[in-house]
Design a binder for these strands. Structure first.
Lengths: 204, 204
DNA sequence: TTTGGAAAATAAACACTGTTCAGTATATTT
DNA sequence: AAATATACTGAACAGTGTTTATTTTCCAAA
């Protein structure tokens, strides 16, 4: 029965085509501005066809998020070259900021946009971010064990470091840091300074 | 000519009615889920009428944000009772978190939602958050002057503290802290712990 | 007090959106 | 070749923000 397998393969190919087009368009124009019809046009299929492969736009976004988190994990893996855990933690932090700066729309869709993880009920569906978070958690835990960080609890530590970076990023992404009245050019520098200072402050 | 004044008053009243209804509905159901038609229904006018008072939904949101920032400033004013600047900074931080917890949808619409400040061109329109930011900035500056904080630059300090709080809040609001695998109840406690630890870490 | 003109409110439409469904074309099995 | 299962799509539904032509309301001058 090679046919069933081919059909399955074709189905997977179609999902690929859809998710690839969607990812590309989300990154270029932002999730909100891309409609199912736009995606259907791009892949030269009817809008209704997309609903044969994804139950709704949220499910499609979920798949794009999955993809995005894989590439974040890759980005992490490539960036963590140091042997010293503390040095690795710094690399992780800068890799995170770097990922945002290279793919702001992707960051938005992974961490800021409302859909789809606020869809109640689907509790355990939010596993996409796990590996990226685990990278942070284990690194932080190792640093705490070796008394390299001024933290006791690794969960609190991971939360704090993540929140700090995410806070800066999402204020930046929404142009909220304008109120700081910094010259355009000085903003990125200030963000970098803030991170540098924070990392210096939390180490022993 | 009392008529012109009455007309002006009526115009202002109408804007009030619209912005009040909008604020109420945004808070209850979230900005995205409230349509111009819904608001029009609520105030018992035609949808088109709203466009005689607001050029688009963004302008309406902008007015609601203005309102929201006033109430945040009020909230700050009521919370900052201590004489010691460092104590006042703590109160500010907790007031910020408190405001979020009392009005999560309002926080969303003030700090996270995309519209309207990303509308390019209207550079100086984003002055709503000024007074709230100024409260933080001046307090931080005072603390630095009196050598109460481990910061040199007040702008970096204000950015950092704000980013930390905002980061925790917005990760919480988007249920991203689920990856920390904390029991439901422990989450809020952990957020509080993270803030407590952070404040302890940045003081001299 | 009636009439003319300005101002305010609206019904209806436009161009979108996500989504569904009845019907058509294609491929596979009998 | 006929019957069946699969894949696809046109058209529609119910909603969105917004605009326009039309009607209603109001005020001032004849």
């Amino acid at each position: 029965m090679g046919i069933a397998e081919r059909k399955e393969r074709e189905r997977a190919d179609m999902r690929r085509r859809i998710v690839d087009a969607a990812m590309k368009m989300f990154v270029e124009e932002g999730y909100e501005k891309v409609s199912i019809r736009n995606i259907a046009d791009k892949i030269e299929y009817s809008p209704a066809t997309i609903y044969l492969y994804y139950k709704d736009k949220d499910e499609l976004l979920y798949d794009v998020q999955k993809e995005a988190f894989v590439s974040l994990a890759d980005h992490f893996a490539r960036s963590l070259t140091a042997a010293e855990p503390l040095e690795r933690l710094m690399q992780l932090a800068w890799a995170y900021i770097g990922f945002y700066r290279e793919n702001p729309e992707l960051y938005d869709l992974m961490f800021i946009i409302k859909a789809p993880m606020n869809a109640e009920g689907e509790e355990e569906k939010w596993k996409n971010g796990d590996s990226a978070y685990d990278a942070l958690y284990h690194l932080v835990a190792e640093c705490i064990e070796k008394k390299l960080l001024r933290f006791q609890n690794p969960t609190i530590a991971a939360m704090s470091i993540w929140a700090f970076a995410h806070g800066l990023i999402s204020l930046d992404l929404r142009s909220r840091l304008k109120v700081c009245k910094l010259p355009e050019k000085a903003l990125n520098v200030s963000i970098d300074d803030a991170i540098t200072e924070y990392l210096a402050a939390v180490r022993c």
